[in-house]
C-alpha cells in the first residue's frame, strides 16, 4: 500500500486531506504525525503546517472472503449434495454460508463436520494470507441455533448452581462453545465461570459466588475508622 504525506493548516485538516485522497474513513488509515503544526501568533508569525504520513490500512478481509469462498466451494465440489456458498464480511470476520438441501450431512454430529470444514478453510486461507483470518462457516443458521441452545444450557446450569451453592461442570466443549457459555453468564454476578481441563476435554465450570455482605462497605468502614 502506498504511503503518502499530507499537509494541512491543522492536524484535522491534514487528516481530512488524507481521507479525501484515499477515499477512506479515518479509521482505515494508519496515521503517523510528522509535525503537529502550530498556528503561530495570530496565525501569522511562526505558523507551521501540520504534516502527517498516512497509509491505508490493509483491508484483507474482502480478499480473504473471496478466497475462502473459493476454497469452500472447491471442497464442496466433491460432495454429492447441491450447494451454493455465500460470502460476506460480518463484524471483522468472514462469514461463509452454505445453502444446501437441508440434510444434516454438512453439519454432522454436534457440528463436527461443519467445524472440520471451518477449520480447514481457516487453515488454508490463513496460510495463503500469511496471517490469521477469522472465518465462520455456517449452514441453515446452525451457528445461531447452537448459540441459542448453549445460552439456554448455561442459564439452566447457573440456576442449579445458585440453588445448590455447588459448582457444576458442562460436558467437554470446543473453544467457540465455551466462549458462548462464558459470555452468557458474564453479566451474572451470582456465578462465575472458568475453563478447566486440557485440549479436547476442556470444560466450563460454573461456580457460585459467595455473597460477602457488602465487601466494599467494609472497606469504607476501615477507611473511616483509620
Amino acid at each position: 500500500m502506498p504511503t503518502q504525506e499530507f499537509e494541512g493548516k491543522s492536524l484535522e485538516e491534514a487528516i481530512q486531506n488524507a481521507c479525501d485522497a484515499f477515499h477512506l474513513p479515518q479509521e482505515q488509515l494508519d496515521i503517523e504525525i510528522l509535525s503537529k503544526g502550530s498556528s503561530g501568533i495570530f496565525g501569522i508569525v511562526g505558523a507551521r503546517k501540520a504534516r502527517i504520513r498516512a497509509t491505508p490500512k490493509e483491508t484483507p478481509l474482502d480478499a480473504a472472503s473471496q478466497r475462502a469462498k473459493e476454497v469452500l466451494a472447491e471442497i464442496l465440489k466433491y460432495v454429492d449434495v447441491p450447494t451454493v456458498v455465500e460470502a460476506e464480511v460480518r463484524e471483522e470476520c468472514v462469514y461463509l454460508n452454505i445453502v444446501s438441501n437441508g440434510s444434516g450431512l454438512l453439519i454432522g454430529k454436534r457440528g463436527k463436520t461443519l467445524n472440520a470444514l471451518q477449520y480447514l478453510v481457516n487453515k488454508i486461507v490463513s496460510r495463503e494470507m500469511g496471517k490469521n483470518v477469522p472465518i465462520v462457516v455456517d449452514t441453515e443458521n446452525y451457528r445461531s441455533k447452537r448459540e441459542g441452545s448453549l445460552t439456554e444450557l448455561a442459564l439452566q446450569l447457573s440456576e442449579k448452581v445458585k440453588k445448590s451453592r455447588r459448582p457444576l461442570t458442562t460436558g467437554p466443549m470446543n473453544a467457540q462453545d465455551r466462549r458462548i457459555i462464558h459470555l452468557a453468564l458474564k453479566e451474572d454476578q451470582d456465578v462465575r465461570t472458568k475453563s478447566k481441563g486440557e485440549g479436547t476435554m476442556r470444560r466450563v465450570v460454573i461456580y457460585p459466588v459467595k455473597k460477602s455482605k457488602g465487601h466494599s462497605s467494609s472497606v469504607a468502614e476501615a477507611k473511616t475508622s483509620a
Partner: peptide, 14 residues
C-alpha cells in the same frame, strides 16, 4: 481429524 471428517462426509454423500 478434520481432513478425515470431511472425507467421510464426502464419501457418505456417495
Amino acid at each position: 481429524h478434520a481432513v478425515r471428517t470431511v472425507a467421510q462426509m464426502a464419501a457418505a454423500s456417495k
